[in-house]
Amino acid sequence: MEEIPTPSKEQPHHPLDDLIRTDRIPHIWCPGCGIGTVFSACLAALKASGINLQKTVMVSGIGCSGRAAGYVKLDSFHTTHGRAIPFATGLKLANPELNIVVFSGDGDLFAIGGNHFIHAARRNMDITVICVNNLNYGMTGGQVAATTPYLAKSTTTPAGNPETPFNLPLMAYACGATYVARWTMLHIRDLTDSITEALCKKGFSFIEALSPCPVNYGRRNKQKPLDMLKLYQEKAIIKNDADPATLDIDFEKGIILGKFIDLDRPTFIENYDKIYRPSRLQENVPELNS
């Protein structure tokens, strides 16, 4: 047998270590959980985007994905359940220079926090919302969520989910989001590119990242961690600009991924400045002329 070289005593540095609170690693996410991968894609995108990271803030709600704020080495806020978006709204309005990333889960953003999502998208609040969609409430042990597929099992739908799940990109689009994309945690490069694009884009951006929850969702639905990834691989249909109304998640027919919406309309702050703070715009005039 080949001799395995002894690793050097000094621990090598992961390329993202400068954006991670390494003193808090390993994180709490279970083996096989995809949140870490989506989080890693988000950090890679933050680097790739070239935005000023000192002026970049991550805001999370509650739940497994909500813990992301605790691992990023940027200003980060771990708020109450469902309230990451309104907290982020206040931050952005107080200091429009800040780049704000809301990183949270499907339960947090779309059940308890659904109302805030709808209105932030409608206002075109200039923030980037990344939703890790693991199809259930992981932190509390695998309860049904607003994204759980019809008939899927959870601890609170032991005989199958009687409800219809949300089509998140459709909802984001209908509410007024100016950038909408969906990828899985297996489509990491596309996901990273989308997050990078969203970070650089003005307005309300939304990225849904499908991610396995092997311990709580997979276990009850006869899916081993790799089964879920294989499903992503086999069932993915990449279709940019697909009609948002066609984006229901259906593992039988296939899951449509891609960038669906990329449009421009004035942000809340732009409109607010125009109507209420014209002096701010006047201050900008010399800059524009110079």
């Binding site: 309104p86 907290f87 107080a94 805030h116």
Partner: peptide, 10 residues
């Protein structure tokens, strides 16, 4: 929530 966010925004 927005009030808390704004406070941390300075």
């Amino acid at each position: 929530a927005s009030v808390l966010g704004a406070s941390w925004g300075g």
